[in-house]
Design a protein around this nucleic acid. Structure first.
Lengths: 244, 244
DNA sequence: ATTGAAATTGAATTTAATTTCAATATTATA
DNA sequence: TATAATATTGAAATTAAATTCAATTTCAAT
């Protein structure tokens, strides 16, 4: 935000010749950020594939040619903007980590609340994350690294939590992946695609987060979370095999 | 396959004037199908966004101009080709429905085997399904309809399975959606993105299907499926809350 | 105030594709 | 085998963007 020169953000420097792709003055830095902010706005509105360079420069209120003074192409700009977006989310996430140690359900809940809030507030940007991940394998990897890393604490804990199951690290990861992947489809179809069958009775962010946490917790522990922690899903304690 | 004229496949007829978008002879039908087959090949190879009209005509071995004789644009062709692809999958699916009535786990397993097999065999096409769903809201809806419809039998069964839980139809659908959505992320990252951390120890189609079915079953019933039906995941019976 | 480095403009150019269409070929039918 | 309907070709025109760059402006340092 403050320092004009040393940023690691400049990604796709087209070899060595040509335009700088980095601002060389405070004013330049301002303009560069104006373009980034404009890009975020356009991305949220029209998505990655429909975005045009002139959309961004118009939104920023600058001439088209200026774009190339700071970015080699739309993809670089988009990657930079979305990487920033993810990092900002993660920053907040650290703060979120003030839940009692060992309370698995609260920890899942805190994590899910953050994710759900982000989808609810920025559905267009979340869509772009998926678009760009499909387009660019490096970005796709970044996203997956992120996801896997957030699950790692749990993966590493598995042998201790369930010694009898004798998990290999790989199997633990696969199982956790399968359990945690449940969020993506419903979040996309609820917040991005806004399927009327899902929106029929709207859920608050907390309710959605609770739902995702409960299904995860049940799959992991074969047990419902403590009833006193539930509201929207409290009836799920009765969702279990009858008779037998 | 046999009947040249009456096909409902032609989707985006650009109003009334202009080229037919439908073959008017057996030879024409042949050429049209050749283009569709070529499109499928190109889609699998390069994906929807990188596909060009000349890619398709070259692959089909015809002149570029012929494209417009049968299709208004790439999107129409792609929608038609992918819709066919889905329908073919579903045909097989009906056959798959010869599992013992009331055996929930076997039913899930049969369904998941089919889905996993399709991802394993046609990762490029599955990727295109996601790409086009993102691009075209009508196609996105088609895909979701499909998904929701396949879950409907279970949604409708919920009140009977768990009377005490007193599910509304909407809540039942949301819960099932959350549980069933787990497949998408892992299938994408395993078969399409081929994440090395997941591929480290390769899973067979049956193993992957088993995994997805077990996590679903556990979340639904708070119980592990019958041990004798499991192989890759048999140790998951020990994945449950210890002590208390 | 002058100067030079950097920022900025926007019209001209280039690029990569789509789209058209007159000419030609094929085919089924009378 | 003539004819008309349809299929097919591929070069030319069009289109919608990206990209370049000479000219101009801004601004901080001297």
């Amino acid at each position: 935000m403050s320092n004009p020169t040393n940023n690691s953000t400049t990604v796709g420097n087209t070899s060595s010749k040509g335009s700088p792709t980095v601002a060389r003055s405070a004013k330049g830095e301002q303009a560069r950020n104006k373009l980034k902010q404009a890009a975020l706005t356009v991305l949220a509105r029209v998505g990655y594939h429909k975005m045009r360079i002139t959309d961004v420069t118009k939104e920023a209120g600058v001439a088209a040619g200026l774009f190339y003074h700071y970015f080699p192409d739309l993809k670089s700009l988009t990657i930079e903007v979305l990487t920033d977006f993810i990092l900002e989310s993660q920053n907040i996430e650290e703060i979120e980590k003030d839940v009692p140690k060992g309370d698995w359900f609260e920890r899942m809940l805190a994590h899910n609340r953050l994710v759900v809030r982000t989808y609810a507030k920025h559905p267009g940007i979340m869509r772009c994350l998926l678009q760009l991940a499909d387009e660019d394998s490096t970005f796709s990897e970044t996203l997956r690294n992120n996801f896997i890393q957030q699950l790692n604490w749990l993966v590493r804990l598995m042998p201790k939590l369930f010694p009898q199951a004798a998990f290999s690290e790989h199997q633990a990861r696969i199982v956790i992946y399968a359990l945690a992947g449940n969020a993506e489809a419903i979040l996309r179809d609820y917040y991005i695609n806004r399927d009327p069958r899902l929106l029929e009775h709207p859920l608050s962010v907390d309710e959605m987060a609770e739902l995702l946490s409960v299904t995860f917790y049940r799959g992991l522990f074969l047990e419902n979370p403590p009833a006193e922690k539930l509201s929207y899903t409290s009836n799920l304690q009765y969702m279990k095999k009858q008779s037998s």
